[in-house]
């Protein structure tokens, strides 16, 4: 087993001096890059790197059946995988609770934002589009929530929309783009030794006592998820919401630039 070279004391000492292992401030993101259309076979795709964290989101749109209680709506299905290639701590096998939480948090933000209008995914009676979002973790170095949401949203924002014609799916040639509403992004915070930091890396996640993810668009908070056994005060949560509205501007700009 590889040795974890960073100790809790070392991280605490750095935070006490308002800095972190890689030299960034407490409320700074690591460098972020987005590569869209990474997987041309998928209708939409994006690879996001956030420091050493690397995730790939792929979108497939296929013909499916509506849910009985929503006969006029298509389906949005989000999954996330913590691939064993991404970390020696991820194991082969059925999805772990962590992977399921990740997929549900990404799904909740996208759903709550209304970015995807499931009514527009209706084809004809008994036929709708199933829109699958799959988030693949390729290298884990913390904060999969923000990287995963960003990858999913970037993939959706650049996603082709197949047509249904003469009982056949047309994926190539003259097809349009998937209609998307205002993009959602998320900001994830970790608390270590009563200090709050943005965008925790894997060493910081190892030693955090609690975690909060806030997903928002320009005006509203759309989804939140608190994780790990530690706690936050209402005041801390209010302050993290303020920071989120500020910091999410950078993230929305990255997504906005993709469309041009």
């Amino acid at each position: 087993m590889k040795i974890r070279t960073i100790t809790e004391d070392y991280i605490r000492d750095l935070l006490a001096q308002d800095t972190r292992e890689d030299g960034r401030g407490l409320l700074d993101y690591r460098p972020i890059s987005i590569k869209t259309n990474a997987i041309p076979n998928a209708e939409g795709s994006a690879q996001v790197t956030m420091g050493n964290t690397k995730v790939l989101a792929g979108i497939k749109i296929v013909v499916g059946s509506p849910m009985p209680d929503k006969p006029n709506e298509g389906n949005l299905i989000t999954s996330a995988e913590l691939l064993p290639i991404a970390s020696e701590h991820f194991e082969t096998g059925p999805p772990s609770p962590e992977a399921i939480e990740l997929s549900r948090v990404i799904d909740r933000g996208i759903r709550a934002s209304g970015m995807i209008d499931t009514k527009a995914l209706f084809i004809e009676e008994e036929k709708v589009w199933d829109l699958f979002i799959d988030v693949y973790t390729l290298n884990y170095d913390g904060n999969l929530f923000d990287a995963g949401t960003l990858a999913a949203v970037a993939a959706l924002s650049t996603c082709r929309m197949p047509r249904y014609e003469d009982k056949k799916v047309v994926r190539e040639g003259n097809i349009g783009m998937l209609k998307v509403g205002n993009p959602i992004t998320s900001c994830t915070f970790a608390k270590i030794a009563d200090q709050i930091i943005l965008d925790p890396d894997s060493n910081e996640e190892e030693f955090m006592s609690s975690r909060l993810t806030i997903a928002n668009d320009e005006n509203l908070v759309r989804a939140m998820q608190k994780g790990i056994s530690g706690a936050f005060s209402p005041k801390e949560i209010e302050s993290m919401i303020d920071i989120t509205f500020d910091k999410s501007k950078e993230l929305r700009k990255l997504v906005g630039n993709l469309k041009e």
Binding site: N41, S45, V62, S79, D134, R171
Partner: peptide
Amino acid sequence: AMSPFSGVEDHSRS
């Protein structure tokens, strides 16, 4: 393993 979005046509279960 193959990713669920690896093919042109279908979405495959992972």
